[in-house]
Simulated assay, not measured.
Amino acid sequence: MNDQKITKNRRSVSFTLADGSNVEGYVFLSLYEACHEGPQRVGDLLNNVETFVPVDTSSGMLHLNIGNIIAAYTPLSEEKSDLMTLGAKHKVQITTSLGSVIDGEIFVNLPHERNRVSDYLNQGERFFRIFLAEKIVYIGSGYIVTVRD
Score class of each variant (00 low, 15 high):
Ile106Val: 12
Arg126Trp: 04
Tyr143Ala: 07
Asp44His: 15
Ser141Ala: 12
Asp56Trp: 11
Met84Gln: 10
Glu113Tyr: 13
Tyr120Glu: 07
Leu83Arg: 12
Val23Pro: 00
Arg41Gly: 06
Asn65Lys: 11
Val23Met: 06
Asn109Ser: 12
Cys35Asn: 13
Asp3Val: 08
Asn68Pro: 06
Ala133Glu: 15
Leu110Glu: 14
Phe107Ala: 02
Glu125Trp: 06
Gln40Ile: 02
Leu31Val: 08
Phe15Asp: 01
Gly142Phe: 01
Gly142His: 08
Asn47Gly: 07
Asp3Cys: 05
Ala133Val: 08
Asn65Cys: 04
Leu121Ile: 05
Asp3Arg: 09
Ser118Ala: 13
Cys35Gly: 07
Ser30Asp: 15
Arg126Pro: 07
Pro54Val: 05
Phe15Cys: 02
Tyr143Glu: 01
Asn68Ser: 14
Phe107Arg: 02
Asn47Glu: 09
Tyr73Glu: 15
Ser97Ile: 04
Lys91His: 13
Phe15His: 05
Val147Pro: 00
Glu33Gln: 11
Ala71Met: 14
Leu98Asn: 14
His90Glu: 11
Ala72Asn: 08
Phe127Lys: 03
Ser59Val: 10
Thr16Glu: 11
Tyr26Glu: 15
Gly142Val: 01
Ile106Tyr: 00
Gly142Cys: 03
Ile102Leu: 09
Cys35Asp: 13
Gly67Tyr: 03
Gly38Leu: 03
Glu105Pro: 00
Val53Ala: 07
Ser97Val: 04
Lys80Val: 09
Phe52Tyr: 15
Gln40Arg: 04
Gly38Tyr: 05
Ser59Asn: 12
Leu76Arg: 15
His90Phe: 14
Ser30Gly: 11
Glu24Ala: 07
Arg116Asp: 15
Asn68Gly: 14
Met84His: 12
Val101Ala: 00
Leu17Lys: 13
Ile144Arg: 00
Ala34Asn: 09
Thr57Glu: 11
Gln123Asp: 09
Val145Trp: 00
Val101Arg: 00
Leu29His: 10
Tyr32Leu: 05
Glu50Arg: 14
Tyr26His: 14
Asp119Ile: 05
Cys35Val: 05
Ser12Cys: 05
Leu83Thr: 11
Val137Pro: 03
Val42Ala: 12
Val92Lys: 00
Met1Ala: 13
Ser141Asp: 14
Leu110Tyr: 10
Ile102Gln: 01
Ser12Thr: 10
His36Leu: 02
Gly38Lys: 07
Lys89Gln: 03
Gly38Ser: 06
Ile66Phe: 04
Asn22Gly: 09
Asp82Ser: 10
Leu62Gln: 15
Leu29Ser: 05
Leu62Arg: 14
Lys8Leu: 08
Phe131Met: 06
Ser59Met: 07
Val42Tyr: 01
Pro75Lys: 07
Asp119Ala: 10
Ala34Lys: 12
Gly87Thr: 01
His63Asn: 15
His63Pro: 04
Met84Ile: 00
Asn122Phe: 03
Ile130Arg: 01
Glu50Met: 11
Ile69Ala: 02
Gly99Thr: 10
Glu50Ser: 15
Val53Pro: 08
Cys35Trp: 04
Thr146Arg: 15
Ser118Phe: 07
Asn68Asp: 15
Gly87Glu: 01
Val13Arg: 08
Ile136Trp: 03
Tyr120Trp: 14
Tyr32Lys: 13
Ser21Pro: 04
Leu31Ser: 08
Ile136Leu: 14
Pro111His: 08
Ile136Ser: 01
Asp103Cys: 06
Leu46Ile: 06
Ile136Tyr: 11
